[in-house]
Design a protein around this nucleic acid. Structure first.
Length: 478
DNA sequence: TGAAATGTTGGGGCG
DNA sequence: ACGCCCCAACATTTC
């Protein structure tokens, strides 16, 4: 047997790992390698919360490998050079990794493959993202037929999933890696990072624990998911997205768990909950497939006739949006949650995205980039899909005239304003009656609440009704 | 995975 | 008793 390299990238797990299994089938020892690519870690491109989640995941993976007799080999540099060096130093004859549809990753892997024998497997998605195609071989651009095709294929039984290997041979002949541990980017030990990590402790063990807690058993939260998933004030969602993003939980395992929960649901409502969550996982599969077949979506609107919209792109308003001071409490709560936690409730993502694009008339790419910087679960495919959907310019997009009213969304999905009060403390004492639209509060009520609008909390930076008309006109003209 | 504008209906107040 | 108006409630259309 000869040494081979398991190159892990966004699959920081040992269970259900096609690349690791392929490596094990090919040779031993398997040398687990992660390459920190400086191009992906430049300050300004990624927030400290996102980096902290990644580094924490690497630490956890290393611990899990050491518990099995191996360890994670961590290197920083250009993956082509690093892998070529490692192959030379260790005598590894092949490199195994899970394929990634992101154009940057595809180019990188093509460059690596020119220098070392690279074998790519599936695994980022539950089904290979290039497998579901229309009869003519092209990719789907509408979700419903995609999901129908996706669901028509069989899923493995729970018992057929791949457990983590129990023992791994120690990687031999690996040069000392002490010098390779990265010094940059700095992960600041700030309260923000610590509190973000407390909400999302990185690692495969935690990912698996969350999946079990969410989808395991007859009374699991997945069965209530359909009814509460849009409530921003409740923990009704799985809170699994960062784990899925870095592959700390396999998409396949999540899918099988959802399917199993649906099949064994005690009531029709419970079944609907599991099916609804499964559908959300299929949206993720859909957008990976869209990115694979239509990589140009990363730069431009999928809908060719909507590429000429005249964005206002007001810098001051963009700053107010980023910093959670638009004067619309639901929007501000959500943006502060994002920046502090590195995560945002999905309903809130739609609300703030609609606000940026359709109230401020700011280019959706600005929002897409800001989300990628801050979201621990930020993924090029899902993030782009979500933004193009909200902007009404993508595959299977929301129609352009669908504009969210932030006040009504708040009333519907944060009815007691607990979400707002949690993230916008200066509104804590504002009564329910006014909290979704504090500018309507009479002067005496402002005094009573200790919140002067325009001073303690901003007046709305735009009038929603006017902004809506302005956007409809811009889209019609564009 | 909207919301606003517009249309319709039906009960109750009133002369 | 009856017609008229008002308007909430609901439905449909439009963006």
């Amino acid at each position: 047997m000869t040494a081979v390299i398991w190159w892990t990238r966004r699959d920081l797990r040992l269970h259900d790992n096609f690349a690791l299994q392929a490596a094990l089938a090919h040779g031993e020892p398997v040398i687990p390698v992660f390459v920190l690519d400086p191009k992906l870690l430049q300050a300004g491109d990624v927030s400290d919360k996102r980096v902290a989640f990644l580094f924490g995941g690497l630490k956890a993976l290393d611990a899990d490998l050491r518990a099995r007799g191996s360890q994670l080999i961590l290197r920083q540099g250009d993956p082509v050079e690093v892998l070529e060096e490692l192959c030379a130093a260790t005598g590894a004859t092949a490199v195994f990794a899970e394929a990634d549809p992101w154009p940057y990753a595809r180019q990188r892997d093509a460059d690596v493959a020119e220098r070392v024998p690279l074998a790519l497997t599936q695994g980022i998605t539950a089904r290979p993202y290039d497998a579901i195609r229309k009869a003519d071989g092209t990719g789907y651009t509408v979700f419903t037929p995609f999901s129908r095709a996706w669901k028509s294929l069989p899923l493995p039984a729970s018992g057929d999933l791949m457990p983590a290997p129990e023992r791994l041979a120690p990687p031999s002949d690996v040069p000392d890696q002490a010098a390779a541990i990265p010094k940059t980017p700095q992960v600041s030990e700030t309260w923000g990072v610590l509190s973000a990590l407390a909400s999302f402790p990185p690692g495969e063990t935690e990912g698996l624990r969350r999946l079990r807690a969410f989808a395991g058993g007859f009374d699991a939260p997945i069965h209530q998911y359909a009814g509460v998933r849009n409530r921003m004030d409740l923990d009704g969602t799985s809170l699994l997205s960062p784990y899925l993003r870095f592959g700390m939980i396999s998409a396949l395992r999540a899918t099988v768990a959802a399917h199993h929960a649906a099949e064994h649901a005690p009531t029709a409502e419970a079944r609907k909950g599991a099916e609804t969550w499964l559908n959300e996982l299929i949206w993720r599969e859909f957008y990976q497939s869209v990115l694979y077949h239509f990589p140009a979506v990363l730069g431009q609107e999928f809908q060719a006739n909507l590429r000429g919209i005249s964005w206002r792109n007001d810098q001051a308003e963009f700053a107010a949006w980023r910093e959670g001071r638009t004067g619309y409490p639901v929007v501000d709560a959500a943006m502060r949650q994002l920046v502090q936690l590195g995560w945002m409730h999905n309903r809130a993502r739609m609300i703030v995205a609609s606000f940026l694009v359709k109230d401020l008339l700011i280019d959706w790419r600005w929002g897409e980039r800001f989300f990628m910087q801050h979201l621990a679960d930020g993924d090029p495919a899902s993030n782009n899909g979500g933004w193009q959907w909200t902007a009404g310019v993508g595959t299977d997009a929301a129609p352009y005239f669908r504009v969210f009213n932030p006040v009504l969304q708040g009333e519907k999905f944060d009815p007691q304003a607990a979400y707002i009060r949690r993230w916008v403390p200066e509104l804590t004492r504002v009564p329910d009656k006014y909290i979704q639209a504090p500018w309507t509060m009479p002067a005496d009520a402002q005094r009573l609440a200790g919140t002067a609008i325009g001073k303690d909390y901003p007046a709305p930076i735009v009038d929603h009704a006017l902004a809506r008309e302005r956007t409809l006109a811009a889209y019609r003209a564009g």
